[in-house]
């Protein structure tokens, strides 16, 4: 099943064209790794897909529901706020620097949105939240505050927070970049476990081994376009385009 369809997206900041023309489809159960040099527009792409930024033109459909269409003059037209609010429920986003709420305990970080936004009962949210926490290996941290946790633990809480809203797609923007190298493993393991449960995920990453091992599909972006996409073997093992080759060889050296 197609969860997300993006067509001919463009996005610039002032005179700087950041996303030139990107089309993309995400299917149920897929893990897609997005790689590319710094400044190629990976974060901008995720931010537009999650409505943190607005695209200039393009069409965006989640689960068959149109979030963004383009009018005849080529400008992006967003669906009315109520529709966007519902569509927001289809995805979650995990940030590079977690952005946990420091004044909430770990469990409150996880259950607050389900209770306040989704109007779940506190008991139900608590049960689910505790389940997620133990899945993240943090059952004993329920009452801790974010400042008391390591970066890796904070990132796991932020993944639990996103999962608590039962998204269909989870986006990650470099979930391990803010972590000490020895802590990246625990996050990658969590993502791997989620992949095993057929969670649909789009992960912007610099971890090539992760892209190779976990992703079903790798997208290589450069200068605001998708240069090459395919299985990890194709893109990482046997790149066709010069830009991909150059990028990968720069990483190895």
């Amino acid at each position: 099943m197609k969860l997300l369809e993006l067509k001919n997206m463009k996005k610039g900041f002032g005179s700087l064209e950041v996303i030139r023309d990107i089309s993309l489809e995400i299917y149920q159960g897929e893990v897609v790794a997005v790689i590319g040099p710094s400044g190629s527009g990976k974060s901008t792409l995720l931010r537009c897909l999650t409505f943190l930024d607005t695209m200039d033109s393009g069409e965006l459909t989640y689960m068959g529901r149109k979030a963004v269409t383009t009018d005849r003059s080529g400008r992006a037209v967003y669906a009315p706020p109520e529709t966007l609010r519902e569509i927001k429920g289809y995805f979650g986003l995990v940030f590079q620097n977690f952005n946990l709420f420091p004044h909430f305990s770990v469990i409150r970080n996880i259950i607050d949105a389900p209770v306040v936004v989704q109007k779940k009962s506190r008991e139900e949210a608590l049960t689910e939240g505790r389940g997620l926490l133990s899945k993240m290996g943090l059952a004993d941290k329920e009452n801790a505050y974010p400042y008391q946790l390591s970066g890796g633990q904070q990132q796991r809480v932020s993944i639990a927070r996103a999962l608590a809203l039962n998204p269909k797609i989870l986006f990650f923007d470099e979930p391990t970049s803010a972590l000490d190298p020895e802590l990246t493993g625990e996050i990658l393991k969590v993502i791997r476990d989620l992949a095993a449960e057929k969670m649909t995920m789009v992960v912007v990453t610099h971890e090539m081994t992760f892209a190779k091992d976990v992703a079903d599909r790798v997208i290589f972006m450069s200068d605001g376009v998708i240069v090459e996409e395919g299985t990890p073997d194709q893109v990482l093992g046997n790149p066709k385009h010069e830009r991909t080759k150059a990028f990968l060889s720069r990483l190895e050296s």
Binding site: R85, F91, F95, F101, Q118
Partner: peptide, 10 residues
Amino acid sequence: GQYEAAKVLG
């Protein structure tokens, strides 16, 4: 980031 996290959470 606090605003953005809140926004994405709905």
